[in-house]
Design a protein around this nucleic acid. Structure first.
Lengths: 200, 200
DNA sequence: GTCTATAGAACGATAGAC
DNA sequence: GTCTATCGTTCTATAGAC
């Protein structure tokens, strides 16, 4: 690996943060939230504990940072089509097509998700911070839906915020069922339900 | 407690099983699946380990028996209205009214559920047995829906089996979100979404 | 010289072994 | 029930960017 030039402090910091997050994603995926140690994460990134704690105030925040990336990378990619006002059918088909690969990815992430929810249920402060993420995800979903129905000039089938919540719940539930058995959620349920929920 | 008469062998066996299940429900709720020991369950029921193992082949089966009771008591009670062909609105209103008390019950059961799913993900045989339960629950849901649409003489809005899966996913997802923050799922999302999914 | 990102020692809590 | 190992977190020292 060739080093192009000396990094500024900010660049170096950003690079370290990136490395830590990537390492955390790997280590958490392999060992789970409980099983992963801060030491191991730091080491996997080529640093020590000090580096982790200078970027994240604790282990919870490290996970929440991963969750933020997950929410802002997975979500929008899928719903970009919605915003443009493309027909529900193409959106639904897109989702359905991605499903097999999603199911695969979801194995690790799902485990992490449930571990962290269990953890959050035992700690009020953590629960609140997780809840904030859920709320924000729902609001972003709602904003996208808002734009969509404005774009196609039709009123939403049910109130936007409720619709956003329902979609999140449906997706989370499908995830859970898919973890137990992928076959339960294949065969067009995803797309047909989305069409049903979204179209007038 | 007054004993009316000598119990037959079968009655005594059933009584023991009942006591063990009740004890398991309590102990699992308090300590979680991992934290609960068979010893503690047996003791809480007034028996010893031997009694547990003569009724359930292992800890997994003990949980699965609880799940069976959960599925056949909570589910049908709620969907009985559906079968009769009562209007969606009354069904939805019923669900919405039960929501606060459901959320409360869900705290313990939700924890158990996620613990067991995590456990099942690490053990193929357990995963399969859990998957069977999901499948059966879906089929029972589908059968109820089938009757409903036959009763009202209308075709279902989407294919029955898909509809059953979608409803299960939605309910599971709402549960999960409700565990993190009950406020996320109140305010009519439940009823409006059910109406939307079920009505023609 | 000042500031800050990181290393690494130190500490307290906790879970698991025996 | 005791002991030990492990881990999250805190604290302090230092090297290098500015």
């Amino acid at each position: 690996m060739t080093r192009k030039r000396r990094l500024t402090r900010e660049e170096a910091k950003a690079e370290t943060r990136r490395a830590l997050l990537d390492a955390a994603a790997e280590v958490f995926a392999e060992h789970g939230f409980h099983g992963a140690s801060i030491d191991t994460v730091a080491e996997a990134a080529g640093y020590t504990k000090g580096a982790v704690y200078s970027h994240f105030s604790n282990k919870d925040e490290l996970y929440l940072a991963l969750l933020d990336e997950h929410l802002s990378s997975e979500g929008p990619q899928a719903i970009a089509l919605l915003e443009s006002g493309a027909p529900i059918e193409s959106f639904a088909a897109e989702i359905e097509a991605r499903l097999p690969e999603e199911v695969e990815k979801m194995r690790d992430w799902g485990r992490l998700t449930y571990e962290f929810i269990l953890h959050a249920m035992r700690n009020e402060e953590v629960r609140r911070r997780l809840s904030d993420r859920f709320e924000r995800a729902r609001d972003e979903y709602a904003a996208t839906l808002e734009k969509r129905y404005a774009a196609i000039g039709e009123p939403p089938p049910i109130e936007i915020e409720k619709l956003a919540t329902a979609l999140m719940a449906f997706e989370n539930g499908m995830s859970m069922m898919g973890l137990v058995n992928p076959e339960l959620i294949t065969g067009g349920v995803y797309s047909r339900t989305l069409e049903r929920l979204l179209e007038r």
